[in-house]
């Protein structure tokens, strides 16, 4: 009979071990490192500055319908902020160095980038982070949200953030421009995160201006990206300790069909 009791003990021990292992550890996304040395500024870096101009007619302001959620509806009139044009200048264009950088590892900043959910919108709507850099997501709304990035290269995740809940900190391991971020609760909420392995990116301000600082001298391919009007590229030569100019221009008539149309491949073979 002793051994039947042993059987019971074995199962109990297994159960105990199982329950103790419950507090699983969080996995941390580690940036994939490029070959080459860690990049250090040498002192003869230059900058790229530019302005994004806009021709044609911008879409009229469109009021968001948010009656589904009382907390959002009580905020009053909210307008769609996908196209922000002022005095012929286009805001929220993401400009980044696409190619031409030396083979090197760029240091991951220790600062956090914040993505807030405020007024049933993402603030900011377009943002950039470096691979491995902390993205702090906060919920300032009086309602529950979920954050659902749909990347192609990075790992997809989908987490709720309840009202009153503390920040969620996330990292992206791979370079990817740009990852749509959605809230399934509020279908109109949309943000784009540009993940880059280097710090050479910028966002156009309300006056359409942007600047990328501290680039080593060289020839680069620069890309400007707007969620509605698409991407444009430009070759830019940066001289030592000099400012290079790179202006982009978008036309209101060139907008591609709206919608976030992506077709998921039926079968991904490695």
């Amino acid at each position: 009979m002793f051994s039947v009791r042993m059987l019971a003990l074995i199962f109990l021990t297994a159960a105990l071990a199982l329950s103790l292992s419950c507090g699983g550890k969080k996995e941390e996304a580690t940036p994939s490192s490029n070959a080459g040395p860690v990049w250090k500024p040498t002192g003869d870096e230059g900058n790229i500055t530019g302005v994004i101009s806009f021709t044609g007619t911008a879409p009229a302001p469109r009021k968001m319908e948010m009656e589904n959620d009382a907390a959002c509806a009580k905020l009053g009139d909210q307008f769609l902020d996908d196209v922000l044009v002022k005095d012929g200048k286009l805001q929220n264009v993401f400009v980044y160095v696409k190619s031409g950088l030396p083979q090197a590892n760029f240091e991951t900043p220790s600062t956090e980038v914040t993505l807030d959910q405020k007024g049933c919108k993402y603030v900011p709507r377009i943002l950039g982070v470096q691979t491995g850099q902390a993205l702090k997501i906060t919920n300032s709304d009086d309602t529950n949200h979920n954050i659902h990035p749909t990347p192609k290269l990075n790992r997809e995740w989908n987490e709720s953030q309840l009202k009153g809940q503390g920040p969620i900190v996330k990292k992206f391991a791979k370079q990817e421009t740009l990852i749509p971020v959605k809230c399934n609760m509020h279908s109109w909420m949309l943000a784009y995160v540009g993940v880059l392995s280097h710090p050479f990116y910028a966002l156009s301000a309300a006056d359409g201006a942007f600047s990328i600082k501290g680039l080593p001298p060289g020839e680069y391919e620069l890309e400007a990206w707007h969620e509605k009007y698409g991407a444009k590229t430009l070759k830019v030569k940066v001289d030592a300790k000099a400012d290079a100019k790179a202006d982009f221009s978008y036309d209101g008539a060139s907008a591609y069909v709206p919608g976030s149309l992506k077709v998921q491949p039926a079968l991904v073979l490695p």
């Binding site: 959605k182 949309l190 709206p258 919608g259 149309l261």
Partner: peptide, 17 residues
């Protein structure tokens, strides 16, 4: 389904969600 535009829920939006 090819026309779905989730981001624009404004009144009268075409194609809209």
């Amino acid at each position: 389904p090819k026309l779905y535009n989730e981001a624009d829920t404004s009144s009268g939006a075409r194609p809209g969600p």
